[in-house]
Simulated assay, not measured.
Amino acid sequence: MAYGDSLGGYFSDTNGGSWAIVGGSTNKIYGTGSVNFVQNHPKEQDKVIVYAVPEGDEVATYTRGSAKLVDGEARIPLGETFKWVTNPDIGLTAHLTPVGEACVLYVAETSTSELLVKGGTSCSQGARFNYIVYGLRIGFEDTTVVQKKTQEARIPSMADHRKAIAEHPELAQYTALSRYAAMQGSSREAVRRNMNAAAALLWSIEEFDPAAHKIETLEIMK
């Protein structure tokens, strides 16, 4: 068990440069790396799958599902718990995707408990669709996205990933860079050479280099 009057725990990787505060202020986890889950690869016993959670400029909630029109509309009760954690007044957005046929759908009403979808003249009376509703977590409306710096927050070192690809080149095909390159009908090397804006942004933020940088002591821990 770890606890304190300012934060629950502080962890850092002196080689990779990532750090995390656990149980500090309004945050469960606050740090420079990503939040991931890992599971065994279902077909290759010597590998695992590592997924990362999506991250945005707000503390978001969501619920999703599938439905169909009945007489041109669908009144969908959303997940029972969604209304208990989501601001009912601001931040609600809904997204619709027709399934099986071209169809113009629109959101007639949205709340934290119900979604009303209607179909245009292009839709059959029983048109099917998928939906997702995003909301803003109640109580987190004023969390500050830009904050005063208390310590360096560089991008963690990617050395481990570069080493893994160098030692096992077949792993490169599963990276985001390779996936987006394939969408463009290009190679990862060609796409990387053209990422000038990305390179400039990365340079301005900095990637942690253990030879040049060091993990600083968090001011609150001194």
Rank of each mutant, 00 (worst) to 15 (best):
V70M: 11
T81H: 09
S113H: 13
Q39L: 06
T93C: 00
I21N: 09
G119Y: 07
A60D: 10
K43V: 02
Y62D: 08
C123K: 07
G24L: 04
V70Q: 15
S66A: 08
T112C: 01
P98T: 05
N40R: 15
D71N: 15
Q45A: 15
W84Q: 15
W19C: 01
V117W: 09
S111E: 03
E58N: 13
K28T: 03
Y51N: 12
N40D: 10
S111H: 03
T121N: 11
E73T: 05
T81S: 12
E44H: 13
D71I: 00
P42I: 00
K43N: 14
I29G: 05
V104I: 12
Y106V: 00
S25C: 04
R64C: 00
F37R: 15
T32C: 03
T110W: 06
E58A: 15
V85I: 09
P42T: 08
V22R: 13
K118S: 01
L115W: 06
T86H: 05
F37W: 13
Y106Q: 14
S122T: 13
G33H: 04
E55V: 01
W84F: 08
I29K: 08
K47G: 00
V35M: 04
V38L: 11
G79A: 13
G65T: 09
A60Q: 12
V53M: 11
Q39M: 10
V99E: 10
E101K: 06
D89N: 13
Q45M: 01
G56P: 02
K68Y: 05
Y51K: 15
G56F: 09
A60F: 10
Q39D: 03
Y30F: 09
K43D: 10
L92H: 11
A67G: 02
N27T: 01
I21S: 10
Y30L: 06
G79R: 15
T26V: 04
E55S: 06
Y30A: 00
G56V: 05
L105S: 07
G72I: 05
T112R: 07
P98K: 09
D57L: 08
T110K: 08
I21C: 09
T86Y: 03
Y62M: 03
I76T: 06
S122K: 08
I29R: 10
I90Q: 14
N40L: 10
K47Y: 09
P77W: 06
K28F: 06
